[in-house]
């Protein structure tokens, strides 16, 4: 309750908080205004030239569809293009912004239109979770969580006094840190099913046209989790070992068992020290996700490369960089908050 009061009592906010709040509010207002002015798909479609209209009309009855209509709506700005395939490709595109519709075949509007289209494709908007940004976020978050939990056991195993457990854990960590993630993923996706006689896609319904991608995602998730566990284990181990030996002795002198001591004394204290290196690991992993192109999945990097291949336009890398930057910034912020929250006792 007191927290809520503190939140409402904005007169006493810090000056920097006030500034940030004002900026966010201003951005929200602009977004609201722009999105209410955004042009609808129908309006955009009506803009097509008679030539395009004719093609649309012709293709209603023919079996070969050469025209692709692309409509991308990013909320505040939208883009539509009519492109025909084949040797004599025809292209017509428009950008809808703040209530107006502008031809986007050249100049600044062309650039804006391309940026909208590229961003839209890399965000994987309108597609399921296995595309673009969503894939990147899902794969990194899930494998980081699974890996981090597993890594605690690995780290405890490595510092264990039991020689067998310690050696096994060290061997695991050495193996997964000492070999490339790409190859690990290949082994899990290609070799493991080959050896054990199953297919990743058979984990899903036979009639599911996306079963291949889902199967590949599961394989990637396993590879990334196993790999993350090895890297996180070293972080966890270092953090545990950085805790003062006196803590260990005090817990022992109070009669706590090893498990109790780790669970309530050592690990809670070491978590705070793990956060910055774990954040680094997370950011590294966001970039590593691009390796999934090798097993048929399309993340941000893969989509940008595909666009580069089909359109030969290097500008695609600008939104790609920006998207990565935003993701990294958001997660760095979150990790920073967690670290701060865990530091209250210092």
């Amino acid at each position: 309750m007191s927290k809520f009061k503190k939140l409402v009592d904005f007169k006493n906010w810090q000056k920097s908080t006030k500034t940030v709040a004002m900026v966010i509010l201003a951005i929200l207002v602009v977004i609201f205004v722009l999105s209410s002015l955004n042009v609808s798909e129908q309006d955009m479609l009506r803009n097509a030239s008679p030539e395009i209209e004719q093609i649309i009309e012709d293709e209603k009855t023919s079996s070969r569809k050469s025209l692709t209509i692309t409509y991308n709506d990013l909320g505040v700005i939208s883009y539509i293009s009519f492109t025909t395939s084949g040797a004599s490709a025809l292209k017509e595109s428009y950008v809808g912004f703040a209530g107006g519709i502008y031809g986007a075949d050249e100049g600044g509007w062309k650039f804006a239109g391309q940026m909208v289209n590229y961003t839209y494709r890399m965000l994987g908007t309108g597609e399921n979770l296995l595309h673009g940004v969503k894939l990147t976020l899902l794969l990194t978050t899930l494998s980081m969580i699974i890996g981090a939990i597993f890594s605690v056991f690995l780290a405890l195993g490595k510092i264990s006094e039991n020689k067998v457990i310690s050696k096994l854990s060290s061997a695991y960590i050495f193996f997964f840190r000492g070999t490339p993630l790409l190859i690990q993923m290949f082994v899990i996706y290609f070799s493991v099913p080959g050896i054990f006689g199953f297919a990743w896609r058979s984990l899903f319904a036979a009639g599911d046209p996306e079963a291949v991608y889902k199967g590949a995602f599961i394989a990637a998730l396993i590879a990334f989790s196993l790999n993350a566990a090895a890297y996180c284990a070293e972080i966890v181990r270092a953090a545990i070992q950085s805790i003062d030996k006196g803590q260990n002795e005090a817990a022992k002198a109070l009669g706590m068992g090893y498990g109790q001591m780790m669970r309530t004394i050592i690990i809670p204290q070491s978590i705070r020290r793990m956060i910055p290196p774990l954040c680094n690991e997370f950011v590294m992993m966001i970039k590593d996700v691009s390796l999934v192109f090798a097993i048929s999945l399309m993340d941000i990097t893969t989509i940008s490369k595909t666009i580069m291949t089909s359109e030969g336009n290097y500008l695609v890398f600008i939104p790609a960089l920006l998207i990565y930057l935003v993701i990294t910034a958001v997660f760095t912020f979150i990790f920073g908050k967690i670290e701060k929250r865990l530091s209250i006792y210092e």
Partner: peptide, 25 residues
């Protein structure tokens, strides 16, 4: 259903249309 494996990224044989989802070529 004939399920076909294709490396979509080799124009003009196989490529994505500008909507990023429709295979063309």
């Amino acid at each position: 259903v004939l399920t076909i494996g294709m490396e979509i990224g080799y124009p003009p044989f196989e490529d994505f249309a500008e909507d990023g989802t429709t295979p063309i070529g």
